[in-house]
Computed example of a mutant assay.
Amino acid sequence: MLPWVKLATATAPDGDTLRLLRRGDEFSIRLDGGNELMNSRLGGSEEALATLALGRLSGRSAPRVLIGGLGMGFTLRAAQAIAPEGAQLVVSELVPDLVGWARTHMAPVFKECLSDPRVEVRPGDVLAEIREAEGTYDAILLDVDNGPDGLTRAGNDALYDERGLRSARRALTGGGVLAVWSAAPDAAFLKRLSACGFEASAHTIRAGRSKRGSRHTIWTAVRPGR
């Protein structure tokens, strides 16, 4: 088996060190302690984050979508594949180096997706983007940390508590969709979504594109209206 080769490192705003590794045509981003955050072979559930949400927006000719976390671009590319020509896809990425990696080391994965005129990448915290918006987005797709049960940043909890969810609801248009990726189910989070005024449901999705791999959870939460 081919060994992993370290291509680059980056420091997140909270001080964590991220490592980009490659083995053949496979890429992995890991914390310095060894925990794998994402892998180029396992993007099925991240793709479903986009397809489940945008599937609820049929009939909108120019949806505006906010994607929290660039990662390896699975969610972005899935959104591009189904979004209409008039869509706007805004990607908020906290670690600027990841954008650089997408254009260089991981170019075989990203290809030309960042050159799409519908795409705008904004370095920064997606929570700030959400709090500054009001009735702006038709969909907000969050693949940040491990989901409501955070792994890398305690500050990510503010996305998933009641205040964060109410901010997301306010940032959405009527009938807009908040979609949240998680490594594990969380019954309390589903109840919290409902308590914050969303019509919410949970979906269990395999990590891989086949019926293999670990199971992840995606919540879709619709703001009533329109």
Score class of each variant (00 low, 15 high):
V119T: 07
A107Q: 15
E112Y: 11
F110C: 08
D97E: 15
M106S: 09
H105A: 15
M106L: 11
R131F: 00
L127Q: 01
A128P: 00
E112V: 13
T136P: 06
P96Y: 10
A128I: 11
K111V: 11
T136E: 15
I130Q: 00
L114R: 03
D125R: 03
V119E: 09
H105R: 12
F110D: 05
I130R: 03
P123G: 08
V119D: 09
E129Q: 13
L98R: 14
P123F: 10
G124C: 06
P108M: 13
G124K: 02
M106C: 15
E134A: 10
S115M: 04
E129P: 01
E129T: 09
V126N: 05
V126E: 06
Y137Q: 04
L127C: 02
D125M: 02
V99Y: 13
E132K: 12
V121P: 03
E120P: 00
V99M: 09
E120C: 00
A133F: 04
I130P: 04
K111E: 14
D138W: 01
A102H: 13
V126Q: 08
S115L: 14
E120S: 13
G124S: 02
A133S: 10
D138C: 00
V126Y: 06
Y137G: 01
F110R: 11
G100T: 13
Y137K: 00
T104C: 05
A107S: 15
W101G: 07
A102F: 14
V126T: 10
E134T: 11
A133N: 03
V99S: 09
H105V: 09
P123N: 10
S115D: 14
A133W: 06
F110A: 06
R122E: 02
G124I: 10
P117L: 07
L114C: 07
A128W: 07
E132H: 14
Y137M: 00
T104M: 05
V126G: 05
E132G: 11
A133P: 03
L127S: 08
R103E: 08
V121Y: 08
E120Q: 15
P123I: 03
E112D: 15
V99W: 12
D97S: 12
E112L: 14
V121E: 05
S115I: 01
V119L: 05
H105P: 03
A133E: 06
E134V: 10
P117K: 05
V109S: 06
R122C: 00
A102G: 13
H105Q: 15
E120H: 03
R131V: 01
A133Q: 07
R118W: 09
L127V: 04
K111C: 12
V99T: 13
P108E: 12
V126K: 01
T104D: 13
A107Y: 08
T104S: 15
T104L: 14
V109L: 15
R131L: 07
T136N: 04
